[in-house]
């Protein structure tokens, strides 16, 4: 299980719950396996090869490909998911192949799609080592956390797709049904999670931009979490440790 980390701040702003947690290298070591479990899928390579093999029947030529390296932001997402699973009792019905998560695709849905307190949870994760508070990843117009979270709140079609996406992966029918019922019963009856993975000194002003600009549907159902790794390459170290835990196929 991912360690809980040290509480740096906790506050409420217009009903939004904001949490800050910091980690030591030791805690990172202890958490690495849980994060790796989220990030890697042992059978992925074989499936990929099978898919490549199937191309001959489509009339298209084979695709040239090289094996990928996992990126920092992917580890960050794994960390975020593992953390909120462990400490917010969230559940995500599929926890694998984050390594194939598409970065800037307009076809993608959301970084986190799961259940929290009997309701649907939709969330976005950003990783940043930027020394400024708040970091630009929270405010960038095109794909900043602000834009992404607002989109999750406002985009009915996107949420409809995510709910169907969850349906095809549900493991616990009752959990799905109760979240879906709650969603249908009243307006905005779902949770929004925004997670920042940082390797700077913990500071609540990381949320400064979002606190001002987030046009949230219902503050009571918005949770913002910042996970602070040790300064000086904390993210790189996490990356290395997670990679070392990867199970070889």
């Amino acid at each position: 299980m991912v360690c809980k980390g040290k509480k740096e701040y906790e506050e409420r702003h217009n009903g939004i719950s904001i949490f800050g947690r910091s980690y030591t290298d030791k805690e990172i070591d202890a958490s690495a396996q849980s994060i790796a479990d989220v990030c890697f899928d042992s059978s992925e390579s074989k499936r990929f090869a099978d898919y490549m093999g199937s191309l001959s029947e489509t009339g298209f030529s084979a695709i040239k490909n090289t094996p990928p390296n996992i990126k920092d932001w992917q580890v960050g997402e794994g960390f975020a998911e593992a953390y909120i699973t462990a400490h917010f009792s969230c559940s995500f019905p599929w926890s694998h192949n984050r390594d194939l998560k598409n970065p800037n695709s307009s076809l993608s849905g959301a970084d986190l799609v799961g259940f929290y307190q009997g309701k649907f949870l939709f969330g976005e994760v950003k990783t940043s080592t930027e020394g400024k508070y708040p970091p630009q990843v929270t405010s960038k117009k095109s794909d900043g956390l602000n834009t992404q979270l607002n989109k999750l709140c406002a985009d009915h079609d996107l949420r409809s797709t995510l709910i169907q996406y969850l349906f095809h992966r549900q493991k616990n029918k009752d959990e799905y049904k109760s979240a879906c019922k709650a969603y249908l019963e009243s307006k905005n009856n779902f949770y929004i999670f925004g997670v920042l993975v940082r390797s700077v000194q913990p500071n609540v002003s990381d949320w400064g931009y979002l606190k001002k600009r987030l046009q949230i549907h219902d503050g009571e159902k918005v949770i913002l979490v910042a996970l602070y790794l040790p300064v000086n390459n904390g993210i790189k170290r996490l990356h290395a440790r997670v990679l070392s835990k990867k199970v070889k196929p």
Partner: peptide
């Protein structure tokens, strides 16, 4: 490389 593989998946 990483994105390359993701893109390859989309193409397939």
């Amino acid at each position: 490389n990483s994105e390359n593989k993701i893109k390859a998946m989309r193409l397939m």
